[in-house]
């Protein structure tokens, strides 16, 4: 990655990190260790975000609370008819 042109590659680096084929960037990468390192770090960022078990599944008590609210909404809707 040349001193003057780093930022011009960022959009393509992000596309490549998404799995898109970017021929222009691919031709550039062999000659540019900083761009290769940047691509690797972007891929790792996405992988960490995807793999962190932040989501999980809704608990039974949460699902039950939702169903109670829906039953109340349903009764209200009927009462308003």
């Amino acid at each position: 990655m040349k001193k003057h042109g780093c930022r011009t590659w960022l959009g393509l680096l992000c596309d490549e990190a998404d799995g898109k084929k970017t021929p222009r960037l691919r031709a550039h990468l062999p000659d540019c260790p900083p761009c290769r390192a940047m691509l690797a770090s972007l891929k790792r960022t996405v992988a960490v975000l995807k793999s962190a078990p932040l989501g999980g599944k809704p608990t039974s008590s949460l699902k039950n609370a939702l169903r109670r609210r829906l039953r109340r909404s349903s009764r209200l809707a009927v009462a308003c008819l």
Binding site: L10, P34, M38, R44, T45, A47, K50, A52, P53
Partner: peptide
């Protein structure tokens, strides 16, 4: 230049529960 970053790879081994929690907290 844009700076490369260095941090652990994703998908730690199952026995690394503490490391996984650290990743989750970091995210």
């Amino acid at each position: 230049n844009l700076r490369p970053a260095d941090f652990p790879d994703a998908a730690p081994a199952p026995e690394e529960a503490a490391r996984r929690k650290e990743l989750t907290d970091a995210v």
